[in-house]
Amino acid sequence: MDVFMKGLSKAKEGVVAAAEKTKQGVAEAAGKTKEGVLYVGSKTKEGVVHGVATVAEKTKEQVTNVGGAVVTGVTAVAQKTVEGAGSIAAATGFVKKDQLGKNEEGAPQEGILEDMPVDPDNEAYEMPSEEGYQDYEPEA
């Protein structure tokens, strides 16, 4: 019985440690998101679009440190934060509304985080759909 109880105690310690790591990862992701939003706020009209992409990228980098179902929630929060940063930029006159959601080359930025393969159960990952990809044929 002692062996059984000791095993359960060790398992509990492992769960607590994993929860603490997840909590730490979420806190880091939130900190990076805040950094990115402050970065966007300090940019001029020309830099705002690039700044919004930076927020998304920093958040995406930190999301990889967070495991399990938390990833889905962090990704949703990050996307809403990026959308909010863009709205703030438009409201303050840093950028025109028609410039939001495009990178410096004018290509749409939507789907940055949505296409990231995420499995809350950590069982399997699927690649994003290939609808947006084109076949590449090298020139002879």
Rank of each mutant, 00 (worst) to 15 (best):
Thr75Asp: 05
Val16Asp: 01
Pro138Asp: 11
Tyr125Val: 11
Thr64Phe: 03
Gly84Phe: 07
Ile88Val: 06
Ala30Ser: 01
Phe4Tyr: 13
Gly93Gln: 07
Gly93Val: 07
Ala29His: 03
Gln109Met: 06
Thr75Ala: 12
Lys32Thr: 04
Ala27Phe: 14
Val3Tyr: 06
Val48His: 00
Asp121Lys: 12
Val118Phe: 05
Val16Ser: 06
Asn65Ser: 01
Pro138Arg: 08
Phe94Asn: 06
Pro128Leu: 09
Ala30Met: 13
Thr92Val: 07
Ala107Ser: 03
Glu114Asn: 07
Ala85Cys: 05
Val3Leu: 08
Glu35Val: 07
Ala90Ile: 05
Asp2Gln: 12
Ala30Trp: 08
Glu20His: 15
Tyr39Asn: 10
Ala27Met: 11
Lys6Asp: 05
Val82Leu: 12
Val48Trp: 06
Lys10Asp: 04
Thr81Leu: 03
Pro117Arg: 04
Glu105Gly: 08
Asp115Leu: 08
Glu20Asn: 11
Pro108Tyr: 06
Glu57Cys: 09
Gly25Leu: 10
Val55Met: 15
Thr81Ser: 03
Val49Asn: 07
Lys6Arg: 06
Leu38Ala: 09
Ala19Phe: 15
Ala107Lys: 08
Asn65Asp: 03
Met1Ile: 00
Glu126Ala: 04
Asn103Lys: 01
Ala30Tyr: 15
Ala29Phe: 01
Gly73Ser: 06
Asp121Val: 14
Glu130Asp: 04
Leu8Gly: 00
Thr92Gln: 10
Gly51Ala: 04
Val26Lys: 00
Gly31Lys: 11
Lys23Trp: 13
Val71His: 04
Asp135Lys: 13
Pro117Trp: 04
Gly25Ser: 14
Leu8Gln: 00
Glu137Ile: 09
Thr81Pro: 01
Asn65Thr: 13
Glu61Lys: 06
Glu46Val: 08
Asp115Asn: 14
Gly36Arg: 15
Val118Cys: 11
Val63Lys: 00
Ser9Ala: 04
Tyr133Ser: 04
Lys21Trp: 05
Gly93Lys: 06
Glu57Gln: 14
Thr64Arg: 12
Thr81Met: 08
Asp119Ser: 03
Gly132Ile: 13
Asn122Trp: 02
Tyr133Ala: 11
Met127Trp: 14
Gly73Ile: 13
Glu137Cys: 14
Tyr133Arg: 07
Lys23Asn: 04
Gln79Lys: 09
Gln24Ala: 01
Thr44Asn: 01
Thr64Lys: 14
Pro128Ala: 10
Gly93His: 10
Asp119Ile: 03
Lys96Glu: 11
Lys96Asn: 10
Thr44Pro: 01
Lys97Cys: 13
Gln62Gly: 00
Ala76Cys: 15
Thr59Pro: 01
Ala27Glu: 01
Pro138Cys: 03
Gly51Ile: 15
Val71Ser: 04
Asn122Cys: 15
Thr59Asn: 02
Ala85Tyr: 14
Ala19Ser: 01
Val63Asp: 02
Thr59His: 01
Ala27Cys: 03
Pro138Leu: 15
Glu123Ile: 12
Pro138Lys: 08
Lys97Tyr: 10
Lys10Asn: 06
Pro117Gln: 12
Thr44Glu: 00
Asp115Cys: 11
Glu61Met: 04
Glu123Gly: 09
Met116Ala: 15
Thr44Leu: 06
Gln62Trp: 09
Gln109Gly: 02
Asp121His: 12
Leu113Ser: 13
Gly93Asn: 11
Gly67Val: 07
Gly93Pro: 08
Gln134Lys: 15
Gly106Thr: 09
Asp135Gln: 10
Glu110Phe: 07
Asn103Ile: 04
Gly36Gln: 04
Pro138Phe: 11
Ser129Thr: 08
Val55Tyr: 02
Ala69Gln: 11
Pro120Leu: 04
Gly36Glu: 04
Val26Leu: 09
Gly47Trp: 06
Ala85Ser: 06
Asp98Lys: 11
Tyr136Glu: 11
Glu28Asp: 11
Lys102Arg: 01
Val118Tyr: 05
Ala89Cys: 10
Thr59Cys: 14
Ala91Ile: 14
Gly51Pro: 03
Val55Lys: 01
Thr33Gln: 00
Asn65Glu: 07
Ala78Gln: 01
Val49Gln: 14
Val52Ala: 13
Pro128Ile: 14
Thr81Val: 12
Pro120Gly: 07
Glu46Thr: 15
Tyr136Met: 13
Glu105Ser: 10
Ile88Glu: 04
Gly36Lys: 13
Lys45Ser: 06
Glu35Asp: 01
Ala91Gln: 08
Pro120Ser: 09
Gly84Pro: 03
Ala91Gly: 13
Asn122Glu: 02
Glu137Met: 13
Ala107Gly: 06
Lys58Trp: 02
Gly25Met: 15
Ser129Leu: 13
Val49Ser: 06
Asp115Trp: 11
Lys32Ala: 08
Thr92His: 03
Ile88Leu: 13
Met5Ala: 02
Val63Met: 03
Gly7Lys: 01
Val74Met: 11
Lys43Thr: 06
Lys60Phe: 04
Ala27Pro: 00
Lys43Cys: 14
Met127Ile: 12
Ala53Thr: 01
Ala69Met: 15
Val52Gly: 01
Gln109Arg: 02
Ser129Ala: 09
Tyr136Cys: 08
Glu61His: 10
Gly68Tyr: 12
Glu35Phe: 09
Gly7Ile: 08
Gln109Leu: 11
Pro128Lys: 07
Gly132Ala: 09
Lys6Glu: 04
Gly106Arg: 01
Glu104Leu: 09
Leu100Gln: 05
Glu28Asn: 10
Lys21Leu: 13
Ala76Asn: 01
Thr64Met: 14
Glu28Phe: 07
Gln62Tyr: 03
Gly47Val: 03
Ala91Leu: 14
Leu8Ala: 02
Ala19Pro: 00
Gly93Asp: 06
Thr44Trp: 15
Val48Asp: 00
Glu105His: 13
Glu110Lys: 02
Gln109Lys: 08
Asn103Trp: 12
Thr64Gly: 05
Ser87Asn: 01
Asp119Ala: 03
Val37Phe: 07
Val3Met: 13
Gly73Phe: 15
Gln99Met: 13
Glu20Met: 06
Glu28Gln: 04
Glu83Leu: 14
Lys60Asn: 07
Lys12Glu: 00
